[in-house]
Design a protein around this nucleic acid. Structure first.
Lengths: 121, 121
DNA sequence: GTAATATATGATCATATACTCAGATAATGT
DNA sequence: ACATTATCTGAGTATATGATCATATATTAC
């Protein structure tokens, strides 16, 4: 059971399998990819956002309809939609004062369905 | 532009397209599925957990190796592994005092790779 | 049994999240 | 221009999250 220090400056770091640590480091994503990916999944980590995304997969909807569907305030919906817009998951189309939201592409539902598969075993 | 109240008790709820709200409600998941699904994605919503999962896809690893890889405390790793165990994403195998963790199944990486596809456009 | 090693757990704390509220903005109707 | 409608935004707040630290547990070696 060989022990090695991974870094001279951090003598508290204990490593049993140095080769595995190295392999993990070599296979790791960049910090950028990692943050984007975590951010992407954060989008799906909220029940209300999931409901919005699945509803928008069926049909485009406006803010107040989504608010009625979720039974939360329009302001709260608007905040969540901004979140989804920033994440490039939804797009909107304006018709007068009404904004109709829809999904951007098929990755969104694909991700949700893969997750649902796992959850239902 | 017809307006209807979705509920007599909540006169502040404004609905433009009642049919869409109804369709969304009919297509919606149960609260249980929704919470499980959100919980599932919450697992992937953290950079360190993502790194752990991707590393364990390559090879089984023990706690202290993961800690060295992530450059965080073994305690923090242990907390995250408990999270992953509760979510049924990883399993462990004991060899003396050392616990080797590995992924439970292929849904995990499938989910991560679908996400990565989207993130990289 | 005791000591040492590897991991797990509970308490605590700083930050992130998701809502509400009040007010701002954008498009339409008069 | 002014009022109305639909949505957006910033501030404030309560809860959730993820790390650290100290301590507890589990296995092995002596």
């Amino acid at each position: 059971m060989q022990k090695e220090m991974i870094n001279e400056d951090k003598c508290d770091v204990r490593v049993i399998h140095f080769d595995k640590v190295k392999a993990a480091q070599e296979g790791a994503l960049t910090e950028d990819d990692l943050l984007n990916l975590a951010g992407f999944f954060k989008t799906f980590a909220d029940p209300n956002r999931l409901k919005i995304l699945m509803a928008l997969d069926l049909q485009e909807m406006c803010v107040c309809d989504i608010a009625a569907f979720l039974d939360i305030s329009e302001s709260a919906v608007s905040h969540q939609l901004r979140y989804l817009r920033n994440g490039k998951l939804v797009r909107s189309r304006r018709e007068g004062t009404v904004l109709y939201y829809r999904l951007v592409d098929e990755h969104v539902m694909k991700t949700i369905l893969t997750g649902l598969e796992h959850v239902r075993e």
